[in-house]
Write a protein that binds this DNA or RNA. Sequence first.
DNA 1: TTGAAAGCGCTAACAT
DNA 2: ATGTTAGCGCTTTCAA
Lengths: 339, 339
Amino acid sequence: MNSDNRHNGSRNITISDIARELNLSKTTISRAISGKGRIGEATRKKILDYIKLHNYKPNVIAKGLAQKKTFNIGVILPADANLTEIPFFQNCLMGICEAAAGRDYDVVVATATEDDITFLKRLIDNQKVDGIVLTRSLVNDLPVSYLKETGIPFVLIGSNEDDEIVQIDSNHTEGCCELTSILLKSGIKNIALLAGNQNHMVNRSRYAGFLKAYEDLGIEADDSIIFPDMNNNILIQRAVGIIMSKGADCIICSDDYICSRALATLEEEGYSIPKDITIASFYNSVNLENHNPPVTALKINVKELGITAGKTLINMISGEGIEQRTWVNYEIAIKKSTS
Amino acid sequence: MNSDNRHNGSRNITISDIARELNLSKTTISRAISGKGRIGEATRKKILDYIKLHNYKPNVIAKGLAQKKTFNIGVILPADANLTEIPFFQNCLMGICEAAAGRDYDVVVATATEDDITFLKRLIDNQKVDGIVLTRSLVNDLPVSYLKETGIPFVLIGSNEDDEIVQIDSNHTEGCCELTSILLKSGIKNIALLAGNQNHMVNRSRYAGFLKAYEDLGIEADDSIIFPDMNNNILIQRAVGIIMSKGADCIICSDDYICSRALATLEEEGYSIPKDITIASFYNSVNLENHNPPVTALKINVKELGITAGKTLINMISGEGIEQRTWVNYEIAIKKSTS
DNA sequence: TTGAAAGCGCTAACAT
DNA sequence: ATGTTAGCGCTTTCAA
């Protein structure tokens, strides 16, 4: 075995090796690589050639130690029971990875639940990241409070009432208002709402958008067919029963999961869509698009959300100017389910 | 602004600070922390108390530089179009994170596609990780070839014919054989198979398990209702049409996505399950469980797969003994769809 | 049992 | 334009 513990014993070439071989100082090599500081064009080229020829790769860890940086950003993924199945976070992550790779950063992930942020704390304590992306926003948000306290740069994918927090989100309130308006104007009158967990900011925004559409049109919403906190199958099933008995002509679901459950219930009961009732969702998914009939929904560009969050965070870390709040565009897809 | 560029200017306390304050050498502090080397019980306690009191956290990066380690493991997630929606990888990741946190490692993620592994290469080149977890197995697997070449420790979640590769998987061939057998023995005779992308090892294993069940029972499978590479909705729809026209009495689907599509097609055509045809899936999902009727399926413990992979990799890195191949248990859930 | 000194691979003042 | 030196925060011989 070699003196070092690298996997294959072929020690990686370092800046000192290059300096020795080329009869130059480490500083000069460093300058050639970073592009900072004055350096002769000839030596510069000689060094760069050597590097390319010998396939030298700088040790990012060492560079980081010297600069007190890690060139890593942390991403906090929810580990709560119902959420690990949701593709939203995975797509976010893909976007963040893409943005990070473009700036030579890497992405380290850690999980958190609504009431346990020990892994987030560990990530910060161990000084493994230069900043954090939060991928969801809660009403009582432990990570946000903690991160504000530490002062480490972070961005939130989602919305928060605190203006000091850098936020990346789609304008759910506006989008949901718009979708609801379109339905109301199309002649649909008694719209029921199956709203999600009100501890999640996004569900509050959607709820607010729904109500705003009524307000804007000067119509009164029917409270008896509005159901918040539809957190499990049984609640949804029951609510659908009530909704049908009350003769509503449309159900809007807060997200695709609720919508899938509502559709299943309606089908079990023998209702036909859109004949017996129309249905729409404030969040899309492959399932909803592939459904028969396809379901009207608000489409969010999730990957773009991730890309923007990643870029914004790295700009923050690099001390560049950033937008305090970025809205990522959405799209309203009207399908047969509300025809 | 402080001389360093930490976020809040409150420089983190270091081993030197402790040494100075306690009138000891850095070496002694280091020993107290690591537990390696002889040290007096009194000084040891004094140091540990100081550390607890002042909430000292060792700088993992610096430790890593000195030991030529990173205390990070890399996880490669597929970024191919159809796969970013699949909860399998997210659940894997959760398991890996859990295992890593337990050993004070962190998880850095990178993406790869079937024919592009530049991000994986970058991760290795930049020396950001001590090992890699591959979360899927292809027939022609670029990451596997590359990693074998570099000699870096890695484990594969999935199966590969190369015995030198450390593999963590559920025994799909066995499980699918078992499920198929049960159906055949229950009196179902003409079983159609909608098999997935044959470039994925897992789909080959499932296909093999299906055939093995027939072989074991000495029955001939009907080739005309076996469809490999059901990679898109149109192929699935067409295949379902043929299957129904041939009078099969069961459809087994390679995974939950194919199964969802098959179910949708059957419903559109007005077929009723299990009256007109029975159906089962070689991979479960929330959707299939919530379907009406619930769908018979092979249930894989995905998180366990991730946990095992993470543990195994870290054991490898630490030079501990490991299993060359670990099978994670599965479960066969017989539901109404094949009643 | 403890300490001094060198070193991990890089950057950054401060010369020259 | 290039080099010298010190230092990032830790580990690890080697010596005392």
